[in-house]
């Protein structure tokens, strides 16, 4: 079952990869949290921490990066049944933003930690044959 309002609400992140960035970190909470200037949040956050006067600005995350770790999902959740086995990885984009995404357009035996990747827009899920189609980001090798 698709949660249509929550899918729709995440549109800026799913379709346009929007996050935000701390352009001036003024956290008064010395050493108790990991705030730092330049930090990119994806999805965007309201605050680094409650004791911050940090300046957060909207940004679009970098669409190229590298693969930090990955797995090949052999036993998938029901809605991904037709796609298994599929590769899923954690990527660090060039601006430091991190995301979990499927890695597609690559033979499963060619996956490698550190490989360059870039975001492509893909269909992620569908609510059966009659419900809504759900889109977002996957990554492909950036060669």
């Amino acid at each position: 079952m698709a949660f249509i309002p929550s899918y729709w609400r995440e549109t800026p992140q799913r379709y346009r990869y929007e996050g935000n960035k701390c352009i001036k970190c003024e956290c008064k909470h010395d050493s108790k949290c990991d705030c730092e200037t330049g930090q990119v949040f994806f999805p965007p956050r309201r605050t680094c921490c409650p004791w911050c006067d940090c300046t957060l600005e909207p940004c679009t995350i970098a669409t190229t990066g590298k693969l930090l770790t990955y797995t090949i999902i052999v036993v998938p959740p029901t809605q991904f049944g037709d796609e298994a086995p599929y590769a899923l990885g954690i990527c660090e984009m060039d601006d430091g933003a991190r995301l979990t995404a499927q890695i597609v357009d690559v033979p499963l035996d060619k996956l490698e930690i550190g490989m360059p990747v870039r975001i492509e827009f893909r269909k992620i899920q569908q609510d059966g044959h009659a419900g809504i189609l759900m889109y977002g980001y996957k990554v492909v090798p950036n060669s």
């Binding site: 796609e83 597609v104 357009d105 492509e120 893909r122 269909k123 189609l133 889109y135």
Partner: peptide
């Protein structure tokens, strides 16, 4: 097209 590709993507 792959199953995750269509006219929109």
């Amino acid at each position: 097209p792959s199953p995750d590709q269509d006219v929109i993507t």
